[in-house]
Design a protein around this nucleic acid. Structure first.
Lengths: 225, 225
DNA sequence: AAAGGTCTGTCACGAAACTGTCACATTGGT
DNA sequence: ACCAATGTGACAGTTTCGTGACAGACCTTT
């Protein structure tokens, strides 16, 4: 069973832990962020399936973070969880791009239901992100990040990296890669083309350790643990 | 300006009319269905952008209709509006496929916000304002602002900018853009037309940084830090 | 109707990036 | 040490995109 990742941005440790304890047995992995800065930091490194967001945070207002998120990931679901229950607050929350808004105190089962509803809408957003060590691909955006810094890859390099990442942990043969990326219906391509593209890719990735050569077979990407 | 169609399935005529009167000036067309049977009938003929659904109806329970809807239109957003506010009821509503659930009595502005949120999720975003960095679009007025100063774009430029903004954060291929904006059922359009229109747009935007070229793929708009 | 303006699609050209190939160096297994 | 596989640097042809120019279409004004 696949685990769904959530970030819960909340400064009240008690509430955060209660939510975490409730959700984790239901196959969620809840990461608690105690400040907005921490949340930004974590989001830059890794994008979860959904974000739960408190309004009042020690270092600022949650709605600003929500805008920030919307600027980058238009489809990442965000649910506000806050004591602010006025109509004006709720409207403001949605205007800042929230997908749902719950007023504390709330029932945990309802939170669970709303998370599921929002995830159902978002669909298989998980497929969007691939990662290996410090390398992350956002397919929707067609961008690659290394150490949370965007890098620019050529079309061939991107395709190659994507294919390898999709087969993370598996060794893929040179033939398969050539067929996958260079096949223009049987058109022969110099075998060395792959070698060269791998080199170019490695030069750009500041972390080429996870792109391994399997001699006389092909290549393999895997997390170096 | 496009009108968004809603079906409101509700037997209390007063509430239904109040909602209708509130929403119609906001560019919605609200069709009231007094019974589940009528709702099924209308839905079979025409599918709106969103459905508002009361739980207690004279000829049955709303959740059954929601299941019925889900069986046919997986993506059609459904919002429950009902007096039943127990956790168990809410959870049940979501289990039946609801996208949102509001307990009566509710504030009309909040309903409006939640409808917009659900529509945005479903991709039918009728959002009035779009923004990216310092660029803002008011779709109602068909106006574009840069540094809160109105600028004048030609029709093609406006369409292009709008499409890119609607897909903020996502890389859109040249083909998709061409199909979206220039497709007059298969009519061939010179590919360079897009290139030129992008240039013209960039020249006008005093902040072209957020309109990025993704070489050999297409373009992407996103907020810059 | 004529004149002037804007909008639009197309073209030609050039700079820059990309790509495939070669020749040669290096590596790793036996 | 040998050989095959892979890495490396260089190069030239190709592709892609940006740019300025232009002519026809359309609209408004005179």
């Amino acid at each position: 069973m696949k685990v769904t990742e959530l970030y819960y941005i909340e400064d009240d440790r008690n509430i955060a832990l209660a939510v975490k304890e409730y959700l984790e047995p239901k196959n969620f992995k809840v990461t608690i962020c105690g400040t907005l800065a921490e949340a930004r930091q974590r989001l830059s490194e890794h994008v979860p399936a959904c974000v739960l967001l408190d309004w009042n945070m020690p270092d600022g207002r949650g709605d600003r973070l929500c805008r920030w998120i919307r600027g980058r990931w238009k489809e990442l679901p965000v649910i506000f969880l806050t004591v602010r229950g006025d109509s004006a607050d709720i409207v403001s929350g949605f205007q800042n791009g929230a997908d749902d808004y719950m007023v504390k105190p709330f029932e945990l089962e309802v939170l669970y239901s709303r998370i599921l509803a929002v995830l159902r809408r978002a669909g298989n957003a998980a497929e969007r992100y691939l990662s290996c060590d410090d390398i992350r691909i956002d397919r929707n955006r067609r961008a690659v990040f290394c150490h949370s810094e965007e890098m620019s890859l050529s079309a061939a390099e991107y395709e190659l990296l994507l294919y390898l990442m999709q087969n993370k942990g598996k060794t893929v043969t040179r033939e398969r890669i050539l067929a996958q990326i260079w096949d223009v219906n049987g058109n022969y391509v110099n075998d060395n083309t792959l070698t060269v593209t791998v080199k170019r890719l490695r030069d750009k990735l500041s972390q080429p350790a996870c792109l391994k050569t399997v001699r006389s077979v092909g290549y393999r990407m895997e997390d170096t643990l």
